[in-house]
């Protein structure tokens, strides 16, 4: 049993070294979340400890109808989910995580009509906690819309035998 688990873990680790595979699972992760589908979030990249995603501009996500700018909460959701995904995929096999806290600095309004991108990095892991920082931007990563820092409780590996995204 334990040997089987280790073998499966090793296979997963090898598989996860392939960027296309990581991206596939990143996409499945996002698609499994109803609110993410509703908002139209999509995965744009997946590294060892980084995760990138974006949200396209849509009229129903507007927070200031006179200026046509997206609501700050849209950026909150994008950063929350991208950061969570970075923590989730920071280990192979991925780990279930629960958000402890999230702080977002809204540097400026995103330009109306443009998608907002987010890039999150899980920059430190302790036995119980994952620390993530995230930048959201529209035109260039050097000119961010918002930055976020968050901490997640690590709740153990996803049970592999039961399939991806399901729990015991």
């Amino acid at each position: 049993m334990a040997a089987g688990e280790r073998l499966l873990g090793g296979a997963w680790w090898l598989l996860f070294g392939v960027p296309a595979v990581r991206r596939y699972f990143g996409g499945r992760f996002f698609d499994s979340i109803p609110h993410s589908r509703r908002m139209g979030l999509s995965v744009t990249g997946l590294g060892r400890r980084t995760f990138s995603a974006r949200v396209d501009y849509r009229d129903e996500l507007v927070g200031n109808p006179w200026r046509g700018t997206l609501h700050g909460g849209v950026v909150t959701t994008l950063i929350d989910q991208t950061s969570g995904a970075a923590a989730f995929f920071s280990r192979s096999p991925p780990e279930l995580v629960a958000t402890l806290d999230l702080r977002i600095d809204h540097l400026r309004a995103a330009e109306p009509g443009l998608p907002v991108h987010a890039r999150a990095e899980c920059y430190h892991l302790t036995r119980h906690v994952a620390f993530v920082r995230c930048t959201a931007y529209d035109r260039s990563e050097d000119d961010p819309v918002a930055t976020g820092v968050s901490a997640f409780m690590r709740n153990g590996s996803v049970p592999l035998r039961l399939g991806f995204g399901r729990r015991r």
């Binding site: 499994s32 979340i33 109803p34 609110h35 993410s36 589908r37 509703r38 609501h71 700050g72 909460g73 849209v74 909150t76 959701t77 994008l78 950063i79 929350d80 989910q81 969570g84 958000t99 999230l102 995204g165 399901r166 729990r167």
Partner: peptide
């Protein structure tokens, strides 16, 4: 149902709760 973030628990999306508080 569109505000769900974790369908297996199920639980509301943290971003939706955060955005709600911001609103």
């Amino acid at each position: 149902p569109e505000n769900i973030g974790n369908p297996s628990l199920p639980a509301l999306h943290g971003g939706a709760v955060g955005a709600f508080m911001e609103h």
